[in-house]
Design a protein around this nucleic acid. Structure first.
Lengths: 189, 189
DNA sequence: GTCTATAAATAGATAGAC
DNA sequence: GTCTATCTATTTATAGAC
């Protein structure tokens, strides 16, 4: 028989998945514990059996959201930086409203307002993201630049009310990542 | 006699300056109207004579914050993209806690949660920022990449609880902007 | 562990005196 | 235009029954 979650673990898992989705798309302040619990099909009173505070949930939800996002198909095992950036900086990812979105971009300026436990979870998640990107590159500095173009470009593109301009920004960042990769290939040759 | 603000204009101006500082550093949700009015040395009841809602204030405060930030000395009339990035991606700007900070970076992922009037103000502000950066460059695509490296790099650096890592990120982005400018110079020569 | 009920605090917005 | 007072709603967190 396969491994089975206990009842408690199942509940915690549902809460975490709901929180990951809701927080990633709406930020910490716009989402209440009540909304998370309703989405997980539980009541508010049950929350504190699993998490010590809303902030505790947020920290864990960020890690969970990153895991969900990393399981997304085109990102799962990208062949190179260009194909990785092509998905990451897509309009689909920007407009994604109910699936696996990257909390690093969607929440970037939200983190500074939170406590240390949240910042720690975010930092760990970013480091893991960079490690993944580094496996598609050789130079760490260029990897960091590519990562900033991806996360920063996606975050900025989501803040704009001008779709054409937003698309232009995404395209420019894609080209930027590609250029950095190409330079690198040239160095190697 | 020099131009004089009316009493009402002075009050509105104080509210706006307080809001620009408080919102930029703490985001929309963490700041209450009461806090803004206290900082402006007024009471809560007086608020609605100047603004129709908290959101209305936020939209105007973003523009105000950008104006304040653009008046900062090293940014005022930068000689080239490198010197511009050197200040923008400095630890001073990242850690700045009570002066002219750039709302584009500090609030980037906050904007998507707000109404259209806020998104519009942010978009206009970003376009003005790009226009300024464009005057130090020749190629629009590279300007966009530099802007994303600056705003995205600064935003990310603020989210981290690892100062050494944060510094490394800032430095990599500075180098990235410099590389883009250098390439351009090479093209011109 | 999950439920209902409630405590305690805070915030956006409005009313009316001056 | 600015003040005090208040309405109304929401939210985090806790208490206690099952």
């Amino acid at each position: 028989m396969a491994w089975q979650e206990t009842h408690k673990e199942q509940s915690k898992d549902r809460i975490l998945k709901s929180a990951a989705m809701l927080f990633t798309h709406h930020g910490f302040e716009k989402i209440s514990i009540d909304q998370v619990m309703k989405d997980a099909e539980l009541t508010r009173g049950a929350f504190y059996s699993h998490f010590s505070s809303k902030s505790d949930l947020y920290a864990q939800a960020i890690s969970e959201a990153a895991i969900i996002a990393s399981k997304r198909k085109p990102v799962n095992h990208p062949l190179n930086m260009k194909s990785f950036a092509q998905y990451y900086l897509s309009t689909k990812h920007r407009d994604n409203n109910n699936e696996q979105a990257c909390p690093l971009a969607f929440l970037v300026s939200d983190i500074n307002q939170q406590d240390n436990q949240v910042k720690k979870a975010y930092t760990k998640t970013l480091k893991a993201f960079i490690t993944q990107a580094q496996s598609l590159s050789t130079n760490r500095e260029e990897t960091l630049q590519s990562v900033v173009l991806m996360i920063g470009g996606l975050a900025l593109s989501r803040a704009l009310d001008d779709k054409e301009f937003s698309n232009e920004l995404l395209a420019a960042c894609q080209k930027g990542v590609t250029s950095l990769s190409a330079e690198e290939d040239a160095d190697v040759s």
